[in-house]
């Protein structure tokens, strides 16, 4: 479903060139779960952005279903994203936040509403639809963000340290959800984490070290 081959990405900082990714190869099959661990600054987020198609590699290529480009209008159907700090829009309630992703993707309204409601129930936020992000706990916010990432039924979920801001127990619940929902909906999952226990629960565990994935 997704192949990344020989990805190279670096940044200029002043007159110094920092090589972050130095040839990353990665293949992800449909419905598969993969975890990526690595030190801070090793390039995990950079890699996720390349996989999401919102950043371009200096060399190498990402293939989505065999194609080398992921146009904006097909991105929503392909990729869902979850972040460490949730990024919920504070003016919208939980339900509206989930629906927002469908709106931006231009999904048919009625179907999206049903799906949003269903997902909120599935992540344990039934009855919390009208609550604002500020009225939710960290774990609840992340679960709302997961529902939002899945509302367009993407084929791949990219989670960038989704438990980074959560306590141990809440984090474990979020990982349960990501893996459970991924399996249910046959959505592939790339989980970036520092937590070895969480990583161990994915089907495949990789390390990003010195710019290469092992």
């Amino acid at each position: 479903m997704l192949q990344a081959a020989a990805l190279v990405k670096g940044y200029r900082s002043g007159d110094r060139q920092i090589a972050v990714l130095r040839g990353v190869d990665l293949t992800i099959a449909a419905g598969e779960s993969v975890s990526i661990r690595g030190e801070s600054g090793s390039g995990k987020s950079t890699l996720l952005h390349l996989l999401a198609g919102i950043d371009t590699p200096d060399a190498g290529a990402v293939h989505w279903d065999g194609r080398t480009t992921l146009p904006v209008e097909r991105r929503a159907a392909m990729i869902g994203m979850v972040f460490q700090s949730f990024y919920l829009i504070p003016e919208l309630n939980t339900f509206e936040n989930v629906l927002m992703a469908a709106r931006v993707a231009g999904a048919p309204r009625a179907a999206a509403r049903t799906r949003a409601r269903e997902l909120l129930g599935r992540v344990g936020l039934a009855g919390r639809e009208t609550h604002l992000p500020a009225q939710l706990s960290g774990g609840e916010r992340q679960r709302a963000a997961i529902a939002r990432a899945l509302v367009n039924s993407p084929r791949l979920l990219l989670a960038d340290e989704p438990t980074g801001n959560l306590d141990e127990q809440t984090g474990a619940g979020v990982i349960d959800l990501l893996l459970g929902l991924g399996a249910e909906t046959r959505t592939a999952l790339v989980l970036v984490t520092h937590n070895a226990a969480h990583a161990a629960r994915t089907a495949r565990q990789l390390f990003l070290h010195e710019g290469v994935l092992r």
Partner: peptide
């Protein structure tokens, strides 16, 4: 204040 939310909208497909 909403830089990251705007970034997310962009990532979601907002032009």
């Amino acid at each position: 204040r909403k830089t990251r939310e705007i970034g997310l909208l962009g990532a979601l497909g907002g032009r």
